[in-house]
C-alpha cells in the first residue's frame, strides 16, 4: 500500500510536525518543474511527429524552364502524369497567384500585386504526396517521370529542409524527457535523505520500539506513512501550480493557429501522462522511503 494504514494510537509515536520541514516544499518545486518539463516534452514530441508525418512523404517539383508557356504546360503535364501513378496519393500544381501571395509577404504586399514581384519569373511548382513507406523507390520512379515529362526540373523532398527542424524539436523533447528523469531522481534522493533524517531524529524512539518488540515492518509503516503524506502534500501543491501554469499557457497557445506552433499540443495521451505523473511520484516516494527505512533498520540489531 502506498500510504500504509497505521492505527491512530501508533501514529502518535511520531510527533505531529506536518509541513514543518523542507521536504514537502522541495518536492512541490520538483513536481512543478517535472510536470512543466513533461508537458514541454510531450508537446515537442507531438509537434516533431506531426512535422515528420507531414514532410516525410511529400516532395515539390520545381520547374524552371525559361519559357512561361512551356513551364505551365510542363507543370500541368507533370501533375496529370503524377496523379495517374499508383505510388502517388495526390499531385497539385501550385497556382502562380498563391506563389505571389506567399512571396508578397517579403515584398510588403499582402495581395501579391507589387510591380517588382509581378515582373519576377516564378518557377512552376507541383506538390506531390507519396503513398506508403517506400520513399526511396518512389523517388526513383518520380525522377524517371520528371525526366520524361519536365526535363531539367528539380525535385525537392520536404524532409530536406524541414527535417533538421523536426530533428531539433525531437532533440528538445528528449532533453525534456531527460529532465523529467533527472528531477524524478532528485525527488527520490530528497525522499531518501528525508527518510534517513527521520531515522536519525527519531533514533531513540526507534531503538525503544525495537527493544519492546516492534518489527521492522511496524516501524517502517509508521515512517513510510508520514513521508508519503508529507510528499503527497508537496506533490499536490506542485501539481496545482503546474496545472494553473499549463492552463494559462494553453489558453494563450489557443490563439496561435498557424505555423509550427499549431502542431504543438498535449493530446489525450499527454494529459493522461501528466495526470499519472503525480500519482507515480507518490508511489515512487512511498516505495523509496520504505526501501530506505528497511535498509537502515537492517543495520540496527
Amino acid at each position: 500500500m502506498i500510504i500504509p494504514r497505521v492505527p491512530a494510537q501508533h501514529r502518535r509515536l511520531l510527533p505531529d510536525r506536518r509541513l514543518s520541514g523542507p521536504t514537502p516544499w522541495v518536492i512541490a518545486i520538483l513536481m512543478l518543474l517535472t510536470l512543466l518539463a513533461a508537458a514541454a516534452g510531450v508537446g515537442l514530441a507531438r509537434s516533431a511527429n506531426a512535422i515528420g508525418d507531414a514532410i516525410a512523404g511529400r516532395v515539390t517539383v520545381q520547374i524552371v524552364t525559361a519559357n512561361p508557356i512551356t513551364r505551365a504546360e510542363q507543370a500541368a503535364a507533370l501533375r496529370r502524369a503524377a496523379a495517374a501513378q499508383p505510388f502517388v496519393r495526390s499531385a497539385r500544381a501550385v497556382e502562380q497567384a498563391e506563389l505571389r501571395a506567399t512571396l508578397g509577404q517579403w515584398f510588403g504586399s499582402a495581395e501579391g500585386d507589387d510591380p517588382v514581384l509581378q515582373s519576377l519569373p516564378l518557377p512552376a511548382l507541383v506538390d506531390i504526396d507519396f503513398v506508403g513507406e517506400d520513399r526511396a523507390g518512389h523517388m526513383a520512379q518520380l525522377r524517371a517521370l520528371v525526366e520524361r515529362v519536365a526535363p531539367g526540373a528539380r525535385i525537392i523532398p520536404h524532409a530536406e529542409w524541414l527535417g533538421p527542424v523536426a530533428r531539433l524539436i525531437r532533440s528538445l523533447a528528449w532533453i525534456a524527457g531527460a529532465l523529467v528523469l533527472l528531477m524524478t531522481a532528485a525527488s527520490a534522493a530528497i525522499v531518501i535523505m528525508t527518510a534517513r533524517a527521520a531515522l536519525g531524529t527519531h533514533y531513540a524512539t526507534i531503538e525503544m520500539l525495537h527493544l519492546i518488540g516492534a518489527t521492522d515492518q511496524q516501524i517502517t509503516r509508521l515512517f513510510q506513512r508520514r513521508i508519503a503524506i508529507d510528499t503527497a502534500y508537496g506533490i499536490a501543491l506542485g501539481t496545482a501550480v503546474a496545472a494553473a501554469i499549463l492552463l494559462l499557457i494553453g489558453w494563450q497557445w489557443s490563439g496561435i493557429t498557424s505555423g509550427l506552433a499549431a502542431t504543438a499540443s498535449l493530446g489525450a495521451a499527454g494529459w493522461a501522462l501528466l495526470l499519472a505523473l503525480p500519482l507515480l511520484a507518490i508511489a515512487l516516494a512511498a516505495l523509496t522511503a520504505r526501501q530506505t527505512l528497511l535498509a537502515a533498520l537492517q543495520k540496527i540489531l
Binding site: R12, L13, A204, T205, E207, I212, G213, T215, D216, L301
Partner: peptide, 25 residues
Amino acid sequence: PRHRLPGFRRRIGVVFQDFRLIPHL
C-alpha cells in the same frame, strides 16, 4: 536471524537506567 528477535523481545521487560520514555507520548 534478526527477524525473529521481536518475538523474543516481547517476552522481555526492560527498565532502563535512563528511563527512555518517549517524550511526546
